[in-house]
Design a protein around this nucleic acid. Structure first.
Lengths: 189, 189
DNA sequence: CTCTGACATGTAAATATCTACATGTCAGGA
DNA sequence: TCCTGACATGTAGATATTTACATGTCAGAG
């Protein structure tokens, strides 16, 4: 049901269309709960049926603008209060790093270098957003600010991590008889 | 298809049963690609059909032990080489923080405190694993070591992040007219 | 005026994932 | 000996997600 609440949250920030929402899912929410338009439109229809959002405007090319209802806000509150958080994460790119032993060392390093490029790109995009966007007085947009901050920290961390991983692999961590990666940082335990 | 490669990777580390694999998905892989036994058993059957794994042993209570085949190793290599990584992440717990504006401040803070407990627990579990487990000479287990390191760093980061978010909310970031969360750390931009 | 590309909304079918059901074995403690 | 709980494997049905198909509008460049 996460998609439902992601949509409600965005609509609480500003009324917008399915197309606009899809765009948000490729920027701010992409770092938390990705979704495509083919999933978003049917869910919007269900939200209207359930009275959690209403269509409050229209525009060119069949554009439909939706707004959250008080019942919609209540639905978010109830979700936060009554359901247990799911603390699992899914990250395919990390699973790949897990599997890098199946490539020769130079190829594994090239793979990591490619990842690093992606991660710095995301990191810098988010940094720009943090600086440029007017976070205003809107409560939900301020929630978004918290999320963007997370995304930024996450990608900073990822860049540091791939550098660490690359150093380990260069040192032969994925070759038999090479050094075993030891705990290099004893963080707050 | 990620589940498939997660299973192949684990079986490359050590031959084991579906039950054992399920256990792995609740520890090391839980931080990257969670899965339940009801998804694992059918996928194992498909992997056998495709010749990527074979049953190499049995045990009490119908236990079946599987091993990866050379074709299975090749499948991982081909996956890494031929498919584009998906850099998106899914984290429901972060989406919740995104939505915290829908709760009164004290409840929002309590929610974050609960999250913090979970994150420190995960962090400490992983720290223990890093110290206690013999990472040996097995290439795939060494890949696992890279993944555990990531999980540990990730949860360290999450703990710092919820502390930051809690401070922001305490300072009134989610009340109208309160301070707007400004970029507090200028990391490597 | 025509073309192109961004805007805009949807549906269908195939996969993947989750929740619940269903069944049976074996070891160890009471 | 009986009971319990961990071990062990599976299936069924409901949801969620992805990929591909399908359609149409409008603004601006050439």
């Amino acid at each position: 049901m996460s998609l439902r609440y992601a949509l409600l949250d965005l609509l609480a920030g500003d009324p917008m269309s399915g197309y606009d929402l899809t765009g948000r899912f490729t920027v701010s929410l992409a770092n938390v709960w990705p979704a495509q338009h083919s999933q978003i439109y049917p869910e919007l229809a269900r939200l209207v049926q359930d009275g959690l959002i209403v269509q409050t405007g229209e525009g060119p090319r069949g554009r439909k603008v939706y707004s959250i209802t008080p019942a919609g806000v209540d639905a978010i509150t109830a979700w936060l209060r009554e359901t247990e958080p799911d603390y699992t994460i899914r990250a395919e790119s990390l699973l790949r790093i897990f599997c890098l032993w199946a490539l020769p060392t130079d190829e594994a390093l090239a793979h990591l270098a490619h990842d690093r490029g992606e991660f710095t790109r995301h990191r810098d995009e988010l940094a720009t957003m943090i600086e440029k966007v007017d976070w205003g007085d809107n409560l939900s947009r301020r929630g978004a600010r918290l999320s963007i901050e997370f995304g930024h920290r996450y990608y900073c961390e990822l860049v540091e991590y791939v550098d660490w991983a690359a150093a380990q692999i260069e040192a032969g961590a994925l070759r038999a008889g090479g050094p075993v990666p030891a705990p290099t940082l004893k963080r707050t335990l």
